[in-house]
Every structure is written in structure tokens, then in C-alpha cells.
Amino acid sequence: MFTGLVQALGTIRPLGGDRWQITCVSGAIDFILQDLAIGDSVAVDGVCLTVMEVLPQGFIAAASPETLRRTTLGQRQIDDGFVNLETSLRVGSKLGGHFVMGHVDGIGCLQALEQTATSWEMSFSTTEVIARYIVPKGSIAVNGVSLTISNYDPARDWFQVAVIPLTYAETNLRFLRSGSLVNLEADILGKYIEKLMVSSSSPNAADNTNPDELTPAFLIENGYL
């Protein structure tokens, strides 16, 4: 589990088969590699990968066929070769972003980028698989970066986030251009709520609540409010 607060940048290159080599950029080696061991999880552009081998300046990880199918790793769309890196959340650590599992739901595409006085406004196209969990002021992970949704299309074709200067400068979001592909992971809480609603609306359930009708009464009854 991760928080969506990127710790460092790295570069990535395929080694053939399912193996990838991730190299930390200068200045981030000690931060990422401290206590890193074989079997640990690291979020690479939001993709949870398992460390297979620790190197002096990085590590080697493996990606399954399912991971390649769902993420930019399989699309080979990694802008300028830089990827966002975050080691797994430790018990007792601060949770400054939101719960990010590293299980990417799908790929989005940057549609527009505009600099304002206080932030960078970025709009991404998405698919129904991800858009169904998008809510105003909700959380979403873009290339592993925890961001808050500032606007979205009711038709669920796109959403917008406002990226503060610090986040923009410290992550690979600054390398994105119109048409760049990104990994998207919806908030896990929305998925659990949907699962509960579907279960409640099954023929065997006492309450045939429509899973498309999320009401305050339903959430209170099931302990969410």
C-alpha cells in the first residue's frame, strides 16, 4: 500500500521478458534504497512492482502480463524515461495523500495543460471503468501521484486536477504533454462501496437497492456516514 506522495524520480528500461531495471536519479539513491530488500513493493509510476534484485543505484522488478496490459509499461509511453517512485507505506508513517494500492485500473490521456497563478490545471480523458468512481473533490492517482479532482465531465469522458507547483516540480507530471499516456487508479473506497451496493441489490439480498442510486440513507445504513 502507498500514499500517492512521490519520493523520487527514476529511469526505467526493459531487460526483456517481464523484467525491468529502475535506476534512481542522482540524489534519490539513498532515500529509495535504504532498507530496500528483495520482495519489497515499490510503486513505479503508480504500478506496484516487486523487487527481484537490489542494485547499487536501483533495482530490478518484474511485471506480469496483466500489469503490462493495463499500464503504460506495456504501451512503452514513459515520457523522457522518468518514472515516479514511492516505497511502500510503513506502519506508523504519516498518510499525507490517500490509500493507493498500486493496482492500476487503466490508462488515461492528457488532453490539456494550463498554468495558472497558483497551480497547473491538467485535464485527462478516461474510460467508464475509471470514471464511474470519479466524484467532485475525490481522490485519484495519476502516475502514482495522489491528486484531488477539481472538475469532471458529467458524461464521464474527462476529469481535471489542479497540481500545486511543488508536486509539479518533484514528479514526472512536468514532462507530460498533450497526448501523453498516464496510469490511473481510482480511490479504493469507491470500489468497496460499489461492491457493497451490488451485493445489497442481488436477488438474495433483503434490500433491492439500485447500485446506481447512492443515497445518504444507504451510506448511513451501511456505516459510511
Rank of each mutant, 00 (worst) to 15 (best):
M1K: 11
G4D: 05
D18L: 04
S26G: 12
I29W: 04
Q34Y: 12
A37I: 09
I38H: 11
I38N: 14
G39S: 11
C48L: 06
T50G: 14
E53G: 01
L55T: 15
Q57T: 14
Q57L: 11
F59L: 05
P65V: 08
T67H: 04
T71A: 04
Q75K: 15
I78K: 03
D79H: 10
G81W: 00
G81T: 04
V83Q: 06
G92H: 11
S93Q: 15
F99S: 06
F99P: 07
V100S: 00
G106E: 00
I107A: 01
I107P: 03
A112L: 10
T116D: 06
E121M: 11
E121H: 10
T127I: 00
E128M: 00
Y133D: 02
Y133N: 00
G138K: 01
N143C: 14
G144M: 10
S146V: 09
L147F: 00
I149L: 09
N151K: 05
P154Y: 09
R156E: 07
D157K: 03
P165K: 09
L166M: 13
T167G: 06
T167F: 00
E170L: 11
G179Y: 10
S180K: 00
E185F: 03
E185M: 01
K191H: 05
I193D: 05
I193P: 05
M197G: 03
V198S: 08
S199Y: 11
S201A: 11
S202N: 07
N204D: 13
N208V: 03
N208I: 11
P211L: 00
I220G: 00
